[in-house]
Amino acid sequence: MVGMATFSTSGNDAQHPGYLVLLRHGQTAWSVSGQHTGRTDIPLTAVGQGQAVAAGARIRREFPEGFAEGRVFSSPLRRARQTAQYAGFAGAATCPGIAEWDYGRAEGRTRTQISEAWQGDWDLWRDGTQVLGHEYEGEHDELLPSGETVRVRNTAGEALDEVAARARGVVEDVLPVIEGGESVLLVAHAHILRILTTQWLGVDPHVAKLLRLDTAHFSVLSLYKGDRVIDHWNV
């Protein structure tokens, strides 16, 4: 189990399988600036809070029956937990398996900044963070536009295959619940949710680069004639 705890089916005899709903967190200061935001515990902006409220309303229109108790999970990071709260899912349980990609040496830096320092056209999906030297490692405090200071830690980080394995574990946990006719909501982050989608589909995790997922937008994965498919995307 990948941090899911209580993912037992309830004996639901529904004819149709459930849905796996993926909600990305709302806007943060770094989603605006383009800084890689992995494990830095950054909060939502006021705009992000409003986005989360609107996203919750859209999800309830799509799923008016809601989600059963114990079927809503959030990343442990603050921006995801806040999104769940503002979206109206304050009872979300924490799921470490859907924490964002640990960008390690790229954390807190933009692609442009890294490319300039690396002296090459660095691409996260192609190159990963391990290609960056140990000189990129360390810790520092960074001041947000709101006046809050956050701690940024640059470590070795995770390789894409490691993130995909983590996401695959979550898929394996939720699949029996979906097959049993119940729907599950995961509130998390752009990259982990896109990578999780590739693992739901059974394709190479690099395909996640092609799946755009905007702040406070949700996507729906489902089962169709026995296949795992994308039902809706970036709603």
Score class of each variant (00 low, 15 high):
residue 2 V to P: 13
residue 5 A to E: 14
residue 7 F to C: 13
residue 9 T to C: 14
residue 9 T to F: 10
residue 13 D to E: 12
residue 13 D to Q: 14
residue 18 G to L: 04
residue 20 L to M: 13
residue 20 L to A: 14
residue 21 V to C: 14
residue 24 R to D: 07
residue 25 H to V: 03
residue 28 T to R: 02
residue 29 A to K: 01
residue 30 W to D: 06
residue 32 V to P: 15
residue 33 S to M: 14
residue 33 S to T: 15
residue 34 G to Q: 07
residue 34 G to D: 08
residue 36 H to I: 10
residue 36 H to F: 01
residue 38 G to V: 02
residue 38 G to Q: 02
residue 41 D to G: 05
residue 42 I to P: 02
residue 44 L to R: 03
residue 45 T to L: 00
residue 46 A to P: 15
residue 50 G to T: 14
residue 51 Q to E: 14
residue 54 A to R: 15
residue 56 G to V: 15
residue 56 G to W: 14
residue 58 R to S: 14
residue 59 I to T: 08
residue 61 R to W: 12
residue 62 E to S: 14
residue 63 F to H: 13
residue 63 F to T: 13
residue 68 A to R: 11
residue 69 E to D: 12
residue 69 E to I: 10
residue 71 R to S: 07
residue 86 Y to L: 06
residue 90 A to M: 10
residue 91 G to N: 11
residue 92 A to Q: 09
residue 93 A to E: 03
residue 93 A to V: 06
residue 93 A to P: 01
residue 98 I to V: 03
residue 100 E to N: 05
residue 102 D to H: 04
residue 104 G to H: 03
residue 106 A to G: 03
residue 107 E to A: 02
residue 107 E to H: 02
residue 108 G to C: 02
residue 108 G to E: 01
residue 109 R to A: 09
residue 110 T to D: 05
residue 112 T to E: 09
residue 113 Q to M: 10
residue 113 Q to L: 08
residue 116 E to Q: 10
residue 116 E to L: 08
residue 116 E to A: 12
residue 117 A to P: 09
residue 121 D to V: 11
residue 124 L to V: 08
residue 125 W to I: 13
residue 129 T to Q: 05
residue 130 Q to N: 09
residue 132 L to Y: 00
residue 137 E to A: 13
residue 138 G to T: 09
residue 138 G to I: 12
residue 139 E to W: 02
residue 139 E to S: 11
residue 143 L to Y: 04
residue 143 L to I: 00
residue 145 P to D: 09
residue 147 G to S: 02
residue 147 G to E: 04
residue 148 E to R: 04
residue 150 V to N: 07
residue 150 V to G: 04
residue 151 R to V: 01
residue 154 N to G: 09
residue 155 T to F: 01
residue 155 T to S: 15
residue 156 A to H: 11
residue 159 A to H: 11
residue 162 E to Y: 00
residue 163 V to M: 10
residue 166 R to A: 03
residue 167 A to I: 02
residue 168 R to T: 07
residue 168 R to V: 00
residue 170 V to L: 07
residue 171 V to Y: 06
residue 173 D to Q: 15
residue 174 V to A: 12
residue 174 V to H: 06
residue 175 L to M: 11
residue 176 P to D: 09
residue 178 I to E: 01
residue 182 E to I: 07
residue 183 S to F: 01
residue 185 L to S: 14
residue 185 L to Y: 11
residue 185 L to A: 15
residue 189 H to S: 10
residue 191 H to V: 09
residue 192 I to Y: 00
residue 193 L to S: 07
residue 193 L to F: 03
residue 194 R to I: 07
residue 194 R to H: 05
residue 194 R to L: 06
residue 195 I to S: 05
residue 195 I to A: 02
residue 195 I to P: 01
residue 196 L to T: 01
residue 199 Q to S: 13
residue 200 W to D: 03
residue 201 L to T: 09
residue 204 D to I: 03
residue 206 H to Q: 12
residue 206 H to P: 13
residue 207 V to R: 04
residue 207 V to E: 06
residue 209 K to Q: 11
residue 209 K to I: 11
residue 209 K to A: 12
residue 209 K to L: 14
residue 210 L to D: 05
residue 210 L to E: 08
residue 210 L to K: 06
residue 211 L to F: 05
residue 219 S to Y: 03
residue 221 L to C: 06
residue 224 Y to F: 09
residue 224 Y to K: 11
residue 225 K to E: 15
residue 230 I to C: 07
residue 233 W to D: 04
residue 233 W to C: 03
residue 234 N to Q: 04
